[in-house]
Simulated assay, not measured.
Amino acid sequence: MRKTQLALGALVLAGLAGIEPARADYDYPWCIQGAAYDYPGDCSYQTREQCLASVSGRKGYCGQNPAFLLARPPLQPSPRGRRFPPA
Score class of each variant (00 low, 15 high):
1 M>G: 13
1 M>Y: 11
2 R>Y: 08
2 R>V: 09
3 K>Y: 05
3 K>P: 03
3 K>F: 04
3 K>D: 05
4 T>N: 09
4 T>F: 09
9 G>S: 14
9 G>K: 10
9 G>P: 08
10 A>K: 06
11 L>R: 12
11 L>Y: 08
11 L>N: 10
12 V>W: 11
12 V>A: 14
12 V>S: 11
13 L>V: 12
13 L>M: 11
13 L>R: 08
14 A>N: 10
14 A>H: 07
14 A>P: 09
15 G>C: 09
17 A>I: 12
18 G>F: 14
19 I>S: 05
19 I>A: 08
20 E>W: 06
21 P>Q: 08
21 P>E: 02
22 A>W: 04
22 A>M: 07
23 R>L: 06
23 R>G: 06
24 A>I: 11
24 A>G: 12
25 D>S: 11
25 D>N: 14
25 D>W: 09
26 Y>Q: 15
26 Y>L: 15
26 Y>N: 15
29 P>Y: 00
31 C>H: 00
31 C>M: 04
33 Q>L: 00
34 G>T: 05
34 G>N: 04
34 G>I: 03
35 A>N: 08
35 A>P: 07
36 A>E: 10
36 A>H: 06
37 Y>T: 06
39 Y>N: 15
39 Y>W: 15
40 P>A: 11
41 G>V: 11
41 G>H: 10
41 G>S: 10
42 D>A: 10
42 D>C: 10
43 C>P: 15
45 Y>K: 09
47 T>D: 03
47 T>R: 07
48 R>K: 12
48 R>L: 02
49 E>A: 07
49 E>K: 08
50 Q>D: 04
51 C>G: 11
51 C>F: 09
52 L>C: 14
52 L>H: 14
53 A>H: 09
54 S>M: 07
56 S>A: 15
58 R>N: 04
59 K>Q: 03
59 K>M: 01
60 G>K: 06
60 G>I: 04
60 G>Q: 02
61 Y>M: 07
62 C>R: 03
63 G>M: 03
63 G>W: 01
63 G>C: 05
63 G>F: 01
64 Q>F: 00
65 N>D: 02
65 N>H: 13
66 P>A: 03
67 A>F: 01
67 A>Y: 01
67 A>L: 02
68 F>M: 00
68 F>S: 00
69 L>T: 14
70 L>P: 00
71 A>W: 00
71 A>F: 01
73 P>K: 09
73 P>H: 05
73 P>Y: 03
75 L>V: 06
79 P>I: 14
80 R>S: 09
81 G>L: 12
82 R>V: 15
83 R>A: 04
84 F>M: 14
84 F>D: 05
